[in-house]
Design a protein around this nucleic acid. Structure first.
Lengths: 209, 209
DNA sequence: GGCTGCTTGTGATAAAATGCACCAAAGTTG
DNA sequence: CAACTTTGGTGCATTTTATCACAAGCAGCC
């Protein structure tokens, strides 16, 4: 039976589902039709029991003796994660990082599309970048309304990141992925996640003695 | 008393230290001299008790009634994380993501320096990119030996990432930061961490219903 | 049809992480 | 200088997370 509604499922479990999905899609690309919690676990470096238990929060997707049908499980995970559709995403910051994100071709197949890019630098406004043209940051609210975006990416220098975040929240966005190396202060209804390579480096160097 | 040697300290604790360090440096840049576990916790959205407990694994850095001297604590954390020096890092992949990483100016102040960039595309080899010129991936081993690098960044397309990882391991690297959306298979002495924005997006969309 | 060999889903159990309460030390105030 | 406030460090309780172990289900085969 498919278990309780969302709220009670641990966030850490939700966090692993995208990794499962990513891996299953790669297996499917390899031509594979079925897999097992054991194979998946070995590939990901986690225990098969954990994978089974994680999935069991949402339903029964496998068959005893056989394992999981890959394309079926992909579909189920996509529904669970709400990526059985395309989410519009706005990007703030048209520097080299913004450019790399805008030009990345791998978003669409996994449920996301960059629908607008903003910057304050008049030299950048109007330039083509990836699928769109750089827009004036002053047009943020209007463009968010037009596109219906709920997700933003911050790729601006550290010292302006908080100000940008404030304006994104003001414009009604509720999910922010922040590449600037700073912890943002936001209202509790806004979910912020962070990407900072140096955090990973420093985690590694601890063990390098 | 400064507690047990490294091995017994939970990895999850180590993972928070770089965030503490990052935040303390920002406070210092703001001209602040002292802070408290409470202030730090509010800023980071975690409990003050957790911060105190995390730090207590390594020694006693605060003063009752006052809190923590920021520059002192920064220095201590830098020593603990071994970033009281500059670590050479090699980057594989000179596409737009590689370019963004190579041009990022924020590494040096936090303990890292890109000392080489590799690609297989002869049109890119020789180009200036950030602080160095793109080198032939075939020269990997030699350049790693010359630079003494132990850390690598993978910024190549998904379908070549595993092959690149194999060669990095072959060349003796023990720490890999992978931007490709794939879980790499490596020997157990190699530490791999991942950055994949879509994983974060999908985590967010779960809650966007 | 009835074995045999796998694999799932899950309740029970173990381990780990977090939060809480307290005390001593340091600073502050009047 | 004494009462009061603030804050870090620490042992304990609680909560969360991961692991174990096994009954039950399915597939293939003789």
């Amino acid at each position: 039976m498919s278990k309780r509604n969302s709220k009670e499922i641990p966030d850490i479990v939700i966090g692993r589902l995208p990794v499962y999905l990513r891996t299953l899609r790669l297996l499917a690309d390899d031509g594979r039709d079925v897999t097992s919690s054991q194979e998946l676990g070995e590939h990901l470096g986690i225990s098969s029991a954990q994978i089974r238990k994680d999935l069991s929060h949402f339903g029964e997707f496998g068959k005893q003796g056989t394992g999981y049908n890959i394309s079926f499980l992909c579909n189920q995970l996509q529904k669970i994660l709400n990526v059985d559709r395309i989410w519009p995403v706005v990007l703030v910051g048209a520097g080299s990082l913004g450019n790399a994100i805008a030009n990345y071709a791998g978003f669409e197949s996994r449920g996301f599309r960059i629908v607008a890019i903003f910057d304050e630098d008049s030299k950048k406004i109007g330039q083509a970048m990836g699928p769109v043209h750089v827009d004036d940051f002053a047009h943020l609210s209007r463009r968010i309304e037009e596109t219906g975006a709920q997700i933003a990416v911050i790729a601006v220098p550290t010292h302006v990141a908080q100000r940008v975040a404030d304006q994104l929240v003001e414009a009604g966005l509720v999910s922010i992925l922040c590449y600037a190396p700073i912890t943002l202060t936001t209202p509790s209804h806004v979910r912020v996640e962070y990407i900072d390579p140096v955090i990973h480096f420093q985690h590694m160097t601890y063990y390098l003695g």
